[in-house]
Amino acid sequence: MLIRDPRPISLLTGDTAVEAISKLSTNRIVLNSENNSDRIVVCDSNGRVVDAPYVVWDENGVILLHCTTKIPEYLSSVARTLSKNSSHVMNATGAIERFVCQEKYLPRNAGMSVNGLGVSGLYSIALNPLDYENIHVVDLSSDLLIEFGGLTDSHLNGNHLPHHIGLLEYVRLDNGCYPGQEIHARMDSRNPSSKKLIRINLQGPRDIKSLTIQGHKCRLIPEWSDSYAHGITHQDLLDGEYETEFGMVHTATVNIAL
């Protein structure tokens, strides 16, 4: 099954696009030579994540695959910077087909793909696949995103550090000054993160804010799918099935939130 991802896509044109977006991000874009892609994390001044788009180099410019459901506000300041060089930020959502699927179902001849994402690293993103006519396609919902280990607007509402929602590997403090950098630098030197993002399956109440699993507190992100929610807990908690005060819970680590 292929899941069509309707989240917005932007195109940044001009020679200064990489520089402009890198100055807002927790990391400097280094395009992977294999598929010309990288990922950035954009935070607010408190170091909380507001978007974590994949970045794809294209001959027309830099493509951002946003994780938010709406075009994020920070792009207006990028557009302002780029406009000085006659460059632009354009909405490319309608120009690229973006899919999420399990890696084993990845269509051949995708224009670009990123693997090893989501719960247990099982999921992939594919752009513009050519041969999916015979594959069942459904639209991505927030329920499916939670099931796969994806970021919803509840993850990107300025309440979560990248350290806690499966994005720590994109925080590289050698990028210099960016929104939230002081918070991240302080955490790095004083309080190295020991948290990770997990998906939980709980057949219990939906109004709880946290639960304790194997002695580790798990703070829930307040958005549930039919069966699943995401929680932030200690990295030592192994994937498995555990008895909790709210009943049995099954946990699975989100490798890199997609």
């Binding site: 195109l11 632009h88 309608g94």
Partner: peptide
């Protein structure tokens, strides 16, 4: 080869200054 087809690209984001 470009990932962008000929169709579906929006207008540049407006910047009022």
């Amino acid at each position: 080869m470009s990932l962008l087809g000929g169709n579906g690209l929006g207008l540049p984001m407006a910047v009022e200054i």
